[in-house]
Structure formats: structure tokens, C-alpha cells
Amino acid sequence: EPEARKIVEKLINNGLSPEDVKRWAEKNNNPEVKKAAEEYQKR
């Protein structure tokens, strides 16, 4: 999901860690963003 990846990169560029992004995604019920954050961590 390229859109989710863009969101993850934007949040990380704004100073969030991938863990923060995953928590944000869970709080906002956004499994695509959570998955993208996990993939981002593996890179």
C-alpha cells in the first residue's frame, strides 16, 4: 500500500519512531499503516 508507506515516512520525518507510528496506527485503527511501519523497520 504506497499511500500507507507515504504516511509512515511522513510521520517518521516528523520525528516519530516506527514504534510510535505503529501505536498511532493502532489508535487510529489503521492496519495498513501499521503494516507499512513494520515493513519500514525491516529495511
Rank of each mutant, 00 (worst) to 15 (best):
20 D>R: 04
21 V>T: 00
11 L>M: 14
29 N>H: 11
14 N>A: 15
25 A>D: 00
14 N>G: 12
6 K>L: 12
23 R>M: 11
17 S>Q: 04
4 A>L: 05
35 K>P: 01
13 N>Y: 10
33 V>E: 01
43 R>S: 13
13 N>A: 15
26 E>A: 07
27 K>C: 09
17 S>K: 05
32 E>S: 11
29 N>E: 06
40 Y>H: 05
42 K>C: 06
25 A>H: 01
4 A>R: 02
21 V>Y: 00
24 W>Y: 03
10 K>V: 11
9 E>T: 05
35 K>I: 09
8 V>D: 01
35 K>V: 08
10 K>C: 07
42 K>S: 11
24 W>V: 01
34 K>Y: 15
25 A>M: 02
2 P>V: 15
43 R>P: 07
34 K>N: 05
17 S>G: 05
42 K>M: 13
7 I>H: 04
28 N>S: 07
16 L>R: 04
1 E>F: 10
23 R>V: 13
33 V>I: 08
7 I>D: 02
23 R>E: 12
20 D>K: 03
17 S>L: 05
33 V>S: 01
34 K>S: 09
12 I>N: 02
11 L>W: 10
15 G>Y: 02
19 E>S: 06
22 K>M: 15
9 E>A: 09
37 A>L: 13
23 R>D: 09
42 K>L: 13
41 Q>D: 08
19 E>Y: 06
15 G>T: 03
20 D>I: 03
30 N>D: 07
40 Y>N: 02
28 N>P: 00
23 R>K: 11
6 K>D: 12
34 K>R: 12
25 A>V: 01
10 K>H: 14
21 V>I: 15
37 A>G: 02
16 L>A: 06
12 I>G: 02
24 W>N: 01
24 W>L: 03
24 W>Q: 01
32 E>M: 11
41 Q>R: 07
6 K>A: 14
23 R>C: 05
32 E>R: 06
27 K>Q: 13
24 W>H: 01
40 Y>K: 01
27 K>I: 13
14 N>Q: 15
34 K>D: 03
27 K>M: 13
10 K>D: 14
26 E>W: 03
39 E>R: 06
27 K>Y: 10
5 R>H: 14
29 N>W: 04
43 R>K: 13
40 Y>D: 02
11 L>E: 01
10 K>N: 12
18 P>R: 04
15 G>I: 04
4 A>S: 06
22 K>I: 15
15 G>Q: 05
19 E>P: 03
41 Q>A: 12
9 E>R: 10
25 A>T: 01
8 V>Q: 00
3 E>V: 08
11 L>D: 00
34 K>Q: 09
29 N>P: 02
30 N>Y: 15
11 L>A: 04
7 I>Q: 06
11 L>F: 11
30 N>Q: 14
13 N>V: 08
10 K>W: 15
14 N>S: 15
23 R>I: 12
42 K>N: 12
3 E>P: 07
6 K>W: 12
8 V>R: 00
41 Q>C: 09
41 Q>H: 08
21 V>H: 00
6 K>H: 11
18 P>E: 04
40 Y>P: 01
34 K>V: 13
7 I>Y: 07
33 V>K: 00
3 E>L: 08
10 K>E: 15
31 P>E: 11
1 E>S: 12
38 E>P: 00
13 N>K: 14
23 R>T: 10
33 V>A: 04
6 K>V: 10
9 E>C: 09
2 P>W: 15
25 A>G: 03
27 K>T: 10
34 K>H: 10
37 A>C: 04
41 Q>I: 14
24 W>C: 00
30 N>C: 07
31 P>I: 11
35 K>S: 08
14 N>P: 00
7 I>P: 02
5 R>F: 14
12 I>S: 01
30 N>I: 10
37 A>R: 00
23 R>Y: 08
18 P>Q: 04
43 R>M: 14
1 E>P: 12
37 A>N: 02
41 Q>K: 08
16 L>W: 15
26 E>V: 09
12 I>A: 01
9 E>Q: 11
15 G>R: 02
28 N>E: 08
34 K>G: 10
37 A>D: 00
28 N>C: 09
13 N>L: 13
5 R>I: 14
5 R>M: 15
19 E>T: 06
20 D>A: 10
28 N>H: 13
36 A>T: 04
26 E>Y: 04
26 E>G: 02
22 K>E: 07
41 Q>P: 04
41 Q>F: 12
1 E>M: 14
13 N>H: 11
20 D>G: 06
5 R>A: 14
2 P>Q: 15
13 N>W: 09
13 N>R: 14
13 N>I: 08
5 R>Y: 15
25 A>Q: 01
27 K>V: 12
42 K>D: 09
9 E>G: 04
39 E>I: 07
24 W>G: 01
9 E>S: 06
15 G>C: 03
22 K>L: 14
4 A>P: 07
43 R>V: 13
27 K>D: 13
17 S>R: 05
38 E>C: 03
1 E>W: 14
43 R>A: 13
25 A>K: 00
9 E>P: 00
40 Y>A: 04
35 K>N: 08
33 V>M: 06
37 A>P: 00
20 D>Y: 05
22 K>T: 08
4 A>E: 04
27 K>P: 00
33 V>G: 01
16 L>Y: 14
5 R>V: 14
9 E>M: 11
40 Y>W: 14
38 E>Y: 05
20 D>C: 08
20 D>L: 06
41 Q>N: 07
29 N>R: 07
35 K>Q: 10
3 E>D: 14
30 N>F: 15
28 N>G: 03
2 P>D: 15
33 V>L: 09
33 V>F: 05
40 Y>G: 01
41 Q>W: 07
38 E>N: 05
5 R>D: 12
9 E>V: 08
9 E>L: 13
38 E>I: 10
14 N>L: 15
21 V>R: 00
24 W>P: 01
12 I>W: 03
39 E>N: 07
13 N>P: 01
1 E>T: 11
38 E>H: 05
36 A>H: 05
22 K>F: 11
42 K>E: 10
7 I>C: 08
11 L>P: 00
27 K>W: 10
40 Y>L: 08
33 V>P: 00
3 E>M: 07
